[in-house]
Structure formats: structure tokens, C-alpha cells
């Protein structure tokens, strides 16, 4: 028996918004510790890893490990039936072929119940090594979304450079080019870019903006985003989900041929 209660539907809604454009179907792996999901996009250049800790949820129980095969689009549609503030329970029996959703309104005067058919998904689980990155940049998630959106009007790829001066995003296209630079300036001032950079080596890498655009769908989950880079390894983009967990995205760099 698996059952998880969220005080508000909004976290689940935001998690689905942050994953559904990248992944069609995914196994939600539930254990005593919590809920984990790992899935690649259909072209296998990026990977999303979600972790929600059971002990940080309103209530959580999972006696036996269970993999729930979920069509992300269907789950998104069902969650749209919940108000943001609805208490939300998701539940599945050990041998179930459905997941049950219960939405309770704030005043407890309305209860909705939905069942979603589960799928058999043959998923490939990859081991992600603990990695010491050359550069880790913490910045406003809104600012990152804005930069990705702005540079997408110029080109398909972004060159990210991190050095002791700060971080620079650059794009080139047929009609022109653009760069956005943020100085490393940890400051308490309102209105400053307020980024922090943890740097051991300067790095310069290229990535497809199309995937970064998918990643920025997670911005409502967190005010901050962290970008971790090292030469010749995938970029890691992490959004914390309060104290409950995180969503991490990995993207293979574009290599100059």
C-alpha cells in the first residue's frame, strides 16, 4: 500500500508542469523513503530526476517498494481538477492497476476522487555518479528563465562561460547574436542580480536552448536555481522543492565537431 498526502495540490501540479513536456511516461518509484522518478527525454540527450521525501510530506506510507507507471499528460489533466490549495492524497495498492487521487477543498466541504489507469513502463535506470563540478552558480530562477527565453529569440544554442568575473550566456543565430553577463556579486541589496559562484576552474560549454526551456518550467517550484558545470560532462540544473526534495535536470553538452 502506497499513500502520500500533500497539504496543497500546487506542489504536484508544479512538478508535473516541470516534467510533462520532457517525458511522456515515467515510473514513479515509491519506497519507504519517498518518491523518486528518473526519466530521459525521447531523444535521450537529457534526463530528469525527481525526489520527494516521504517524511517531509503531510503524511506518507509505503510498506513495499512499488513502481507506478504513469502517463504524465493524464496525471497533469487529473491534477487540473484540483484547486491549488486542495489537500491531495495519492494512493495505490501493491498490485493495483490504478492510482487514486483524492482532492479535499480547504473548507473540507468538497471531496473529489479520481482514478487513473497505471501503465507497464519498461524504463532504463541510469546511475548518476557524485560529481565535483568546476563551477556551481546559484541564481534567481526567474532570471534564468528570462535569459533562456531572451536568447532563444537569437539562436538554438547557448554558450555558457563561468569564470571569476561571473557567468555569461551567449547565443548566435543567422540574424545576429546576444550575450547576457551576470557578475559574481553576493549582495543583500534588493534588485542586485544576487548570484553566487563556486568556482574551481573556468568552464565554457554549449547547450541546446530547447532543453533549457523545458527545464525552466520548474521555476515556480523555487526562487533559486543552481547550475553545475564541468568540461565534457552534462550540465546539472537543480531546483529545490522546499524541504521536500528536488528536481534535477541533466543535459549533454553540444560538442564542437
Amino acid at each position: 500500500m502506497f499513500e502520500a498526502t500533500f497539504n496543497q495540490a500546487s506542489i504536484l501540479k508544479q512538478v508535473l508542469e516541470a516534467t510533462k513536456d520532457l517525458v511522456n511516461d515515467a515510473n514513479w518509484d515509491c519506497s519507504a523513503e519517498g518518491i523518486a522518478l528518473q526519466a530521459m527525454d525521447s531523444s535521450h540527450v537529457s534526463l530528469v530526476s525527481l525526489s520527494l521525501r516521504g517524511d517531509e510530506l503531510a503524511s506518507y506510507r509505503c510498506e513495499n517498494q512499488i513502481s507506478l507507471g504513469i502517463n504524465m499528460n493524464t496525471m497533469t489533466k487529473i491534477l487540473k481538477c484540483a484547486e491549488n490549495n486542495d489537500r491531495t492524497i495519492i494512493r495505490a495498492d501493491d498490485d493495483a492497476d490504478v492510482m487514486v487521487f483524492v482532492f479535499e477543498s480547504e473548507g473540507r466541504d468538497k471531496t473529489s476522487k479520481y482514478e487513473m489507469k497505471l501503465m507497464d513502463i519498461d524504463s532504463e535506470h541510469l546511475g548518476i555518479p557524485e560529481q565535483e563540478y568546476s563551477a556551481t552558480v546559484q541564481m534567481s530562477s526567474k532570471e534564468f528563465s528570462r535569459i533562456v527565453r531572451d536568447l532563444s529569440t537569437i539562436g538554438e544554442n547557448v554558450e555558457i562561460t563561468v569564470d571569476k568575473e561571473g557567468i555569461t550566456f551567449g547565443a548566435k543565430g543567422e540574424s545576429g547574436s546576444g550575450t547576457v553577463s551576470l557578475k559574481s556579486n553576493p549582495s543583500v541589496d534588493e534588485g542586485s542580480s544576487n548570484i553566487t559562484i563556486d568556482l574551481t576552474d573556468s568552464v565554457k560549454l554549449n547547450f541546446a536552448l530547447r532543453y533549457l526551456t523545458f527545464f525552466t518550467k520548474a521555476a515556480p517550484l523555487s526562487d533559486n536555481v543552481s547550475l553545475s558545470l564541468s568540461a565534457d560532462v552534462p550540465l546539472m540544473v537543480e531546483y529545490a522543492i522546499g524541504d521536500v526534495g528536488f528536481i534535477r535536470y541533466y543535459l549533454a553538452p553540444k560538442i564542437d565537431d
Binding site: M40, V45, I255, D256, D257
Partner: peptide, 14 residues
């Protein structure tokens, strides 16, 4: 021209 390797090639099969 840029090449992009599969994300699989960076991570081991678990």
C-alpha cells in the same frame, strides 16, 4: 557543427 552525445554515454547503467 555541433554534435550531441546521448545522456546514456555519460552515466552508467544502474
Amino acid at each position: 557543427i555541433y554534435k550531441q552525445r546521448s545522456i546514456r554515454s555519460y552515466f552508467s547503467a544502474a
